[in-house]
Nucleic acid binder design. Structure first.
Length: 301
DNA sequence: TCCCAGGTGTCGA
DNA sequence: TCGACACATGGG
C-alpha cells in the first residue's frame, strides 16, 4: 500500500470548479462506482489486471490524487492522471462557452449558476453503452438500482476498510451472464438481449473506442453505433458526448432535455424540432456542453 | 389507475 | 419517412 502522504498532483484550467463537479456526481442517486464524502471522491480503477483505490480532493489550485490501496508504479500514476483528466474533461477551458451563453441570453443564468462545472464523462465506452441501455425508458432511481445489481454481481472489486469497491464488469465476464439471473435482477428481456450482445461485440473487438474514433464524421460515428441492436440515436449521441467527447452531440428526444427546454421557455412541446434546432444552432462547438448544463438545471428546477 | 421516466425496434401507410 | 405501438417496471 502506498504511504498516505504520497499523492499525485493534477492541475486544472481556470474555468474548473471541483465542487460543482462533485455536486453533479453526487445528486442523491445510489451510485455504486464511487463515493463522495467531505469534498473527496473515492473510486476504484482497474489497470493491467489490478484494481486500485484512489481518493481525489482539492488543495489550492490543484487536484490531488491519493492511492489508498494497491502498489504504486509510474505507469499507474500516468494512467490515473489520464483517467481523471478524461473523466472531468480537464483539458478544456470553458470561457468561450460562457461568453456564448451570455451573448445568447436565453440561458445566461447557466453560466453563473454552474460556473466551473465540466462535462462529467464516462471514459469507458462499454460502461457508457451499458449504462445508456440500462437507463432507457426507466426512471433514474431504478436505473441506478439495476446498475448496482449488475456491478456487484459481475464486476471485480477491492476491499478497503471493510468495504468493497467495484469496477464496472468487463465484457468478457458479462457476455457469460445467465439471462435468467439477469431477469431475476429485474432486467427486461430487451435489456438482457442488448447487454449480452454488446458484451460479445466488445469482447470480440467488433466495437471499440479505436474503431469509433477512427471514423471521420459525427454522422459516421452515429451510424457505426446505431447498427447495433439497442443503440438508437439517443444512445449514440449520449455515448459520443460522454466517452469521446464529441462537442456537438445532442441527445435529441431526451425527456430531461425536453423538460429543461420547456423550463427555459424555448419550446412548449417536444415536437417543436425546428425551435430546438434554432436554439442549439449558435452553440456549435458547445452543443454537448449546453445539453449537459440543461440537464444540470433540472436539479434546481 | 394513469402517466411518465436520461428509448428502441417493428410495422404499416 | 413517419407515426403508432409494444416492450417493461417503478414512482408519483
Amino acid at each position: 500500500m502506498a504511504p498516505p502522504h504520497i499523492s499525485i498532483q493534477i492541475p486544472y484550467p481556470k474555468t474548473f470548479d471541483f465542487d460543482q463537479c462533485l455536486f453533479y456526481l453526487d445528486r442523491g442517486y445510489d451510485e455504486c462506482l464511487y463515493e463522495i464524502r467531505a469534498g473527496k471522491l473515492t473510486a476504484a480503477i482497474e489497470r493491467e489486471g489490478n484494481i486500485y483505490l484512489f481518493t481525489l480532493s482539492k488543495k489550492g489550485s490543484s487536484l490531488y490524487l491519493q492511492i489508498n490501496q494497491g502498489q504504486r508504479t509510474p505507469n499507474l500514476d500516468k494512467a490515473l492522471r489520464e483517467h481523471i483528466t478524461k473523466w472531468f474533461d480537464l483539458g478544456r477551458d470553458l470561457t468561450a462557452f460562457y461568453e456564448l451563453l451570455f451573448a445568447e441570453k436565453t440561458c445566461a443564468s447557466l453560466a453563473q449558476q454552474y460556473h466551473g462545472l465540466h462535462l462529467m464523462g464516462i471514459p469507458d465506452m462499454f460502461e457508457a453503452l451499458c449504462w445508456s441501455i440500462i437507463g432507457q425508458q426507466i426512471n433514474l432511481q431504478f436505473a441506478y438500482r439495476l446498475k448496482r445489481r449488475l456491478v456487484e454481481r459481475y464486476g471485480r472489486s477491492i476491499r478497503y476498510e471493510g468495504k468493497s469497491w467495484y469496477v464496472f464488469p468487463h465484457p468478457s465476464k458479462l457476455k457469460h451472464a445467465d439471462p435468467t439471473e439477469l431477469k431475476h435482477m429485474q432486467f427486461s428481456r430487451q435489456k438482457i438481449t442488448y447487454l449480452l450482445a454488446l458484451a460479445k461485440a466488445f469482447d470480440s473487438g467488433t466495437i471499440s473506442t479505436q474503431h469509433l474514433t477512427a471514423l471521420s464524421s459525427h454522422e459516421a460515428k452515429q451510424r457505426f453505433l446505431t447498427q447495433h441492436k439497442g443503440i438508437g440515436i439517443w444512445t449514440a449521441n449520449y455515448v459520443l458526448m460522454k466517452t469521446i467527447r464529441e462537442s456537438d452531440s445532442i441527445p435529441y428526444g431526451d425527456s430531461g432535455l425536453v423538460q429543461a427546454l420547456k423550463n427555459f421557455k424555448v419550446i412548449q412541446d417536444k415536437r417543436e424540432h425546428e425551435k430546438t434546432n434554432a436554439f442549439f444552432r449558435p452553440y456549435v462547438g458547445w452543443q454537448s456542453y449546453l445539453s449537459f448544463y440543461l440537464w444540470r438545471s433540472l436539479y434546481d428546477a
